[in-house]
């Protein structure tokens, strides 16, 4: 999935990953050998955790960027670029998956 496709598709956490919030940051642990990398655990910083929390299978990258720019001191354009890059990283790691297109309709 390239960045244009990432921007246009709503994503949701992978069912193969358990997420737990610890001290304000997300700890992401693959629990099944699906797409996620079983030999790793992942942590996200504060902004990454906010983004991960917003992945409900309905919101697209632009909507997430708008919400991030409302909560943090960043303009929407930069937030958009950072959100896209972060979502690409999550996808590469197998921690998120494209949502069912029927969700949210």
């Amino acid at each position: 999935m390239n960045s244009a496709e990432t921007a246009a598709r709503a994503l949701c956490p992978s069912p193969d990953v358990v997420a737990r919030r610890v001290a304000g940051e997300y700890l992401l642990v693959p629990v099944r050998s699906g797409a996620a990398q079983m030999d790793y655990i992942f942590t996200a910083n504060e902004i990454g955790s906010v983004i991960f929390q917003l992945l409900d299978g309905r919101r697209e990258a632009s909507e997430i960027a708008r919400l991030v720019s409302q909560q943090f001191e960043v303009d929407e354009e930069r937030a958009g670029a950072d959100v896209l890059e972060f979502l690409g990283t999550l996808l590469d790691a197998g921690l998120v998956t494209p949502a069912d297109p029927a969700v949210g309709r």
Binding site: F42, Q71, F72, V83, E85, T89
Partner: peptide, 22 residues
């Protein structure tokens, strides 16, 4: 900025850290 609500927090780019369990 025309936004409603409270003070916005300091921003830093989102980071995903990866720790290998071997």
């Amino acid at each position: 900025h025309g936004r409603t609500g409270g003070r916005r927090r300091a921003y830093e780019p989102p980071i995903l850290r990866r720790v290998r369990l071997v």
